[in-house]
């Protein structure tokens, strides 16, 4: 006996999967670059990085 049809939701095409993958990689690279940027700036500025007079 067959059960109720399974709802598979939205099925991505190959093109959509490739597009999603390229977006995911771009976000990952941006976040990694941001981590490196804040790390380097903290090293460069030292404790003064916390001092921000307006």
């Amino acid at each position: 006996m067959n059960g109720p049809a399974k709802d598979e939701g939205i099925v991505l095409t190959e093109a959509q999967k490739r597009a999603r993958r390229s977006r995911s990689i771009a976000i990952a690279l941006s976040l990694a670059a941001l981590v490196v940027l804040f790390y380097v700036i903290t090293l460069v500025k030292g404790p003064i990085v916390l001092v921000r007079p307006l």
Binding site: I10, A19, R20, S22, R23
Partner: peptide
């Protein structure tokens, strides 16, 4: 509702 076709 469609999945985005946008690439990076």
């Amino acid at each position: 509702a469609e999945p985005s076709p946008a690439t990076a």
